[in-house]
């Protein structure tokens, strides 16, 4: 297995955020973690990218246990994390944000290639290239955050709530782009509250409830599962 999380537990002080969770992702897949607010979805991503150190567990990526790697080292392995709330650097221009996305590379051709790829997916960013990121709209910020993650042409893209705060039209647009990114070869770990959208593009899914995985399976099966329907799809 390409990304394999085993028996992962994380606490914030006395509070257990993740309780012994295990899941996996094959190369080329879109896997989604769905769940309510506070279920621990963001904690999972933050732990994989090294921002949070777990109490126990293993994280195997490409046959390496990356559990004790520093966050900046993990970025260098080809794991790009698009954080919750987009987290742009508002004081930097759009170009500078994207340049930092490829911070670890000094290869001009590689960076130009990465930039031209992301501008193909997000032409609107190209129009705003010199603007400070702080002046972008919510949808543009989500595009910038994803583009910043993609400039480095990662193997694994982790997206935290890309639909948050966006209009339904924009959500559709963003999810179409996610599908395109995946079909060009990037594996995707998608964390979402919008279970309907997430299950529609993912191949497999895990349901996270207060720090535990309570359901897992093929996305289309979960889409029709009565428990998922009543809890997350509002039916």
């Amino acid at each position: 297995m390409w990304l394999k999380i085993e028996n992962l537990s994380v606490s914030y002080g006395m509070i257990k955020a993740l309780n012994n969770i295990s899941f996996e992702l094959k190369q080329g897949e879109i896997v989604t973690l769905i769940g309510a607010n506070g279920a621990g979805k963001t904690t999972v991503l933050n732990t994989i990218s090294g921002l949070i150190k777990p109490n126990q567990g293993t994280i195997i990526f490409n046959q390496k246990n990356i559990l004790n790697f520093a966050a900046h080292k993990i970025a260098g392995l080809g794991i790009a994390h698009v954080p919750e709330g987009r987290k742009p650097f508002p004081n930097l221009s759009v170009y500078e944000n994207l340049r930092l996305g490829a911070y670890l590379s000094n290869d001009k051709d590689f960076i130009t290639q990465g930039l031209s790829k992301v501008f193909k997916s997000f032409p609107r960013l190209h129009e705003r290239i010199k603007q400070p990121a702080g002046t972008l709209s919510g949808g543009e910020l989500q595009m910038l955050a994803m583009a910043r993650g993609l400039v480095s042409q990662p193997n694994l893209l982790m997206l935290d709530e890309p639909s948050m705060g966006l209009s339904p039209i924009l959500v559709n647009e963003i999810f179409n782009i996610i599908k395109d990114i995946n079909s060009s070869g990037t594996s995707i770990l998608l964390v979402e509250q919008n279970a309907n959208m997430a299950l529609n593009i993912a191949s497999r899914a895990y349901v996270l409830e207060t720090g535990k995985i309570t359901l897992e399976g093929n996305a289309c099966d979960l889409l029709n599962d009565p428990r998922v329907k009543s809890a997350y799809l509002g039916e």
Binding site: S49, G50, L51, A70, A71, H72, A75, G76, A80, H81, P83, K87, F89, P90, N91, L92, E96, R99, L100, G101, Y103, L104, N106, R148, S152
Partner: peptide, 24 residues
């Protein structure tokens, strides 16, 4: 410079800067 950009990024948000591969 790239390092200068990284300095400004770190000044604003250390966690996100690390996600870019910046060694704080």
């Amino acid at each position: 410079t790239k390092t200068g950009m990284a300095m400004r990024a770190v000044a604003y948000d250390k966690s996100t800067a690390q996600l870019m591969g910046i060694n704080i």
